[in-house]
């Protein structure tokens, strides 16, 4: 059985990895050259975090799998990212909605993880939280511009938030693994982050003249490997090279 700490590091790494891969789909396609650079920068930050977290997962698991092996040779069922990060990019507003909701969560989570009893996770979190604070500011600025922009931009960001909203609750969900590692002083109490997240998100939505989306029935399951069909397509693209040419390096 995989050690709980390895599973926990895998979850953290998978969130960053899948969102980083999703965002990198914008590379060369963003609405402006400058926005292209911004999104690619965020994607690279996330992939960097994933490398560290998956590295810890591989070390703790001790089956000889490094971060690359974990990223490129696991099947969809073995990925434990939350469902929000695998959602399709849609239009620019939908991508920004996903980024804002996740970065607002991730900033709080990494802030708390920086005082984890596990020194490796704490060190990664301490470094990454600065990156994520910027991601949140960047995405929050766009939420305001789009929401308080034209009729069309407002309608698009409302639709984007509406698409993503049902995946919000899963980010804060605490399952048996989270509770066990929380007791050990390793994991973050995600449920306790919710009031702070609500306050931050509401402040930006209000500046953007947007109403908070109506509560939706939450969709859960990502942590247990129950993913949307979108993840398989993402993996087939991300993993193609290592699947077709195992061990290829350059």
């Amino acid at each position: 059985m995989t050690p709980p700490l390895a599973q926990y590091a895998l979850r953290l790494g998978d969130d960053s990895l899948i969102l980083g891969q999703r965002l990198s789909e914008w590379c060369g396609h963003a609405p402006a050259l400058e926005v292209d650079l911004s999104l690619a920068n965020v994607a690279l930050d996330l992939i960097g975090q994933a490398t560290y977290f998956l590295g810890v997962a591989g070390d703790v698991e001790a089956k000889g799998r490094d971060a690359d092996r974990l990223a490129f040779t696991r099947d969809a069922l073995d990925f434990s990212n939350c469902l929000l990060v695998e959602q399709p990019n849609g239009d620019f507003a939908q991508t920004i909605a996903r980024q804002f909701l996740f970065s607002a969560f991730q900033e709080l989570q990494l802030g708390a993880l920086a005082s984890s009893k596990d020194e490796r996770l704490a060190a990664i979190a301490d470094k990454a939280v600065k990156e994520v604070t910027y991601h949140k500011q960047l995405a929050g600025g766009w939420i305001v511009r789009l929401g308080d922009g034209t009729d069309e931009s407002k309608q698009r960001v409302v639709a984007g938030l509406d698409w993503m909203w049902r995946f919000v609750d899963e980010m804060f969900d605490m399952d048996a693994l989270d509770r066990k590692l929380l007791k050990d002083g390793v994991a973050v109490d995600k449920a306790a982050l919710r009031p702070a997240w609500d306050a931050r998100v509401d402040a930006v939505l209000s500046e953007a003249t947007l109403a908070r989306p109506a509560p939706r029935r939450p969709v859960l399951g990502g942590r247990a490997g129950h993913h949307s069909e979108h993840l398989g397509h993402l993996l087939s693209e991300m993993q193609f090279l290592q699947r077709a040419y195992p061990g290829a390096t350059w």
């Binding site: 400058e34 926005v35 650079l37 911004s38 920068n41 500011q137 960047l138 511009r145």
Partner: peptide, 9 residues
Amino acid sequence: MALEHARDA
């Protein structure tokens, strides 16, 4: 936005 773009570029 100009500051963010300058930072990223």
